[in-house]
Amino acid sequence: MAFAESLDDLLSPEELSKMSGLEFMEGMRDGRLPAPPISRTLGYTLHEIEKGRVVFRGTPKFAFTNPLGTVHGGWYGTLLDSSMACAVQTMVERGATYTTLEYKINILRSIPLGTEVDCIGIADHVGRSTGVAHGEIRGVTDGKLYATGSTTCIVMRLPG
């Protein structure tokens, strides 16, 4: 998986306007488009994609802990924001994009360091101006539910 190394590696709004959100996400999955740098920084990758559903897979490391030695809430939040918002992205038409307007997470239990998890985002509604999605973080091996989330995204028209 290739990662964007600079702003020059990212698509311009004009380039992005020529593909649907699903085509954009498929381009990342297939390696034709670079993955966002945040996913390398926080150790997660795009694992599955279909219209209205995205799965990121990751494993928390010691570098992602808080002063108490547990996985920082920001790691949960970033994975959930990524999966839920990208689920919305898969439903956005050509010529449009999205951004997160707000999101909420509920951490149900601490993820043990080294535990591989899937973060699943599912779009509930995507219209002309808003998208709503929910998500969850589950252990790949143990199946435990570690966190849930919900989001509202704004859908915008791109220039071009």
Rank of each mutant, 00 (worst) to 15 (best):
V92C: 00
M84T: 05
F24M: 11
V132H: 10
P67D: 05
T70M: 12
K18G: 15
I105V: 07
I137E: 10
A85W: 06
I49K: 01
P60N: 01
D118N: 15
L101H: 11
A35G: 07
V126C: 03
I49Y: 00
E26G: 09
I38M: 12
K61N: 14
F62V: 14
D142R: 09
H134V: 15
L80A: 13
H47W: 07
H72Q: 11
R94P: 04
K18I: 05
Y76R: 02
G139E: 03
R109F: 00
V132C: 04
T115P: 03
G135S: 02
S129N: 14
S129G: 12
G69T: 08
G131P: 06
H47I: 11
A85R: 13
G121I: 10
M25Q: 09
G77N: 12
V55C: 07
I120M: 11
D81I: 02
S129W: 07
E50S: 15
E50G: 13
G69F: 07
E14I: 08
E23A: 06
G127S: 09
R29N: 10
V88H: 04
L7Q: 09
T141K: 14
Y44C: 10
T115G: 03
L22Q: 05
L33A: 06
S110Y: 07
L7R: 08
V126E: 02
L108E: 00
S17A: 15
R57V: 07
G52M: 09
I120T: 10
T99V: 11
I122M: 11
D8I: 00
Y76N: 04
K51Y: 09
M19P: 05
Y103D: 12
H72Y: 04
E116G: 08
S129D: 01
K51G: 06
I111K: 02
Y103R: 12
T78F: 14
K18H: 12
G135Q: 05
G21Y: 00
G139V: 04
G21K: 02
E14T: 10
G127F: 12
K18R: 15
G74K: 06
Q89H: 13
T100Y: 03
L22M: 14
Y44T: 13
G143L: 07
T45Y: 00
L68S: 05
M25T: 09
K104I: 02
A4S: 04
P13K: 11
L79E: 01
M19Q: 11
E26T: 11
T90Q: 07
V54M: 04
H134I: 14
I105T: 04
G43D: 10
N106D: 15
V92F: 02
A123K: 01
G139K: 03
V140H: 02
F3D: 06
V88G: 02
G27D: 04
T100K: 10
T130C: 12
S12L: 08
C86I: 10
S82C: 13
L79I: 04
G69C: 09
M91H: 09
E26N: 14
M28H: 00
E26M: 15
V88M: 08
V54Y: 04
S12T: 09
E48Y: 12
M25H: 03
